[in-house]
Write a protein that binds this DNA or RNA. Structure first.
Lengths: 178, 178
DNA sequence: GTCTAGGATGTTACGATATAACATGTCAAT
DNA sequence: ATTGACATGTTATATCGTAACATCCTAGAC
């Protein structure tokens, strides 16, 4: 049975299924993608400056392992459980650091954060948020971004960053609750 | 001198300039567009149900007159100054009502709300937020929406609603602070 | 007219999200 | 060892949003 593989906000069984062709929805090996993302994070820090300190690394792995979007306070409580500082600024600073390097994305419709699935590559993320199961997929948004820049250019506006977020129904939920 | 005509978050002189060709940036007659938007609001309520009660009407006019994006509590304090209830649920309920009918948009990057510039017409809004002067323009996002739906369809996701928000520099600020 | 059901509002209290400000600590380069 | 930049710890508070329940208004049934 097919499920979005990604960022989910409320608690949901975190059971990976068989791999699929489309990476946006494919269930996959969390251990492997976590290790890969951490390696990418190290590389990004080496390139762009800043250190991947224990709190930052742990923040990133929490998001990677959760494999869904988490609220800042949800991340914070896990950090605290691991002995890292238990005050809000700790997690917000770590998230800021990771965001600035493209290792973590902020999902504004959810007031939540998700680990980037393509760390290191420059890309425009497009978030697809299912209202049925609360899954959040990160899809490639390059085309949408280009279209957005064209629309903005028509008014003389120079786009620097864009939030592209959609709510709707994922393939599984379309079948169940149309 | 050219300025975005629209939604601004921090206080800023609200001085309309000469009209321009492109409606997205044109400065214009607030009185007229406020009246037009209110008429459209009445029409929408008549069509879709619900009453444009005093609080709701005043909430809408506050956003129309401010002609910029306002935080909910900012709207609330103006409501309170006019003798309407001073508690948060009052303004959130009014905003929910107006949003549901497309008369008000929520701008998630700013945690703020802005009156819709095209009430009554079905449309996808695209918000252009200037980091120089904090102006917020509502541009037509139909093309971007189409592009987004195409990207989503590739993964089987059915889009229902989309947030399209970009930060960058407006024409005026591009010249001043490049 | 008055009854009534649904919608609308008033109010209290609280939850959730985020940041300011300042003290302390760490580490690498001199 | 000293220093300067970065990183973290901590307190307090700002900002945004909602649950829950009481009250009220209004349109339609009778």
């Amino acid at each position: 049975m097919l499920r979005y593989n990604m960022s989910i906000r409320p608690a949901m069984p975190d059971a990976p299924g068989p791999a699929l062709a489309d990476p946006a929805f494919a269930a996959h090996d969390h251990t492997r993608c976590t290790a890969a993302a951490l390696a990418a994070a190290e590389a990004v820090c080496a390139r762009e400056g800043g250190r991947l300190t224990p709190v930052r690394r742990r923040t990133l792995t929490i998001l990677l392992e959760a494999h869904r979007a988490l609220g800042a306070y949800e991340v914070l409580s896990r950090l605290a459980a691991d002995g890292f500082g238990g005050q809000p600024p700790v997690v917000y600073r770590a998230l800021d650091f990771l965001q600035a390097r493209g290792l973590v994305h902020r999902i504004r419709r959810l007031n939540a954060f998700a680990a980037c699935l393509r760390p290191g590559e420059a890309h425009q993320a497009l978030f697809l948020i299912c209202r049925g199961c609360a899954a959040v997929a990160e899809a490639p948004g390059g085309g949408v971004r280009a279209s957005l820049e064209a629309a903005a250019a028509a008014t003389g506006f120079a786009v620097e960053r864009a939030s592209l977020e959609a709510t709707g129904l994922c393939p599984a939920c379309r079948g169940e609750a149309p």
